[in-house]
């Protein structure tokens, strides 16, 4: 490695770490209710309002490659089963904070928690 290589490595590492630090602040928070949006092939197919303590719930979503199973429990949501070869979406596990996202590229399914609609409380 040349000196310039090393500088590049350092630069990339620093940028990456800064992005990571920002990420921790931006994508980790807690809510009273989570608005989960599920898109398949570019269309919204499900919106769910999750509240703390809600029981386990499973949904079948039709993706490009076939049926995927999405599981929710309390405020969390995950891809339980997917027909894609890489299984990245399944390995990613639960998401529970606004803005967190699960993307299954081969099956063209996107699950994310909408930050605007997730409420901390309701007055009335």
């Amino acid at each position: 490695m040349t000196k310039t290589d090393q500088k590049l490595l350092l630069g990339l590492l620093i940028i990456g770490l800064l992005a990571l630090a920002g990420h921790r602040f931006y994508f980790q928070s807690q809510t009273q209710s989570n608005q989960v949006i599920i898109k398949a092939k570019g269309e919204v197919v499900q919106t769910l309002t999750l509240r703390a303590g809600e029981p386990l719930q499973r949904l079948t979503i039709e993706g490009k490659k076939g049926q995927a199973i999405v599981e929710t429990k309390g405020l969390k949501v995950r891809m339980l089963e997917a027909p894609c070869p890489d299984q990245i979406c399944v390995q990613q596990g639960w998401i529970d904070s606004p803005r967190q996202t699960i993307i299954c590229v081969p099956n063209e399914i996107v699950i994310y928690i909408d930050a605007e609609a997730s409420l901390d409380g309701i007055t009335g």
Binding site: G16, A19, K39
Partner: peptide, 23 residues
């Protein structure tokens, strides 16, 4: 490309991991 093709407002959720994984 994903930010154009995949309609989710939070695609950059993955950015730091992709940056770091490239090293």
């Amino acid at each position: 490309a994903a930010s154009f093709l995949i309609q989710t407002p939070y695609i950059f959720y993955y950015l730091p991991f992709l940056l770091l994984a490239g090293i």
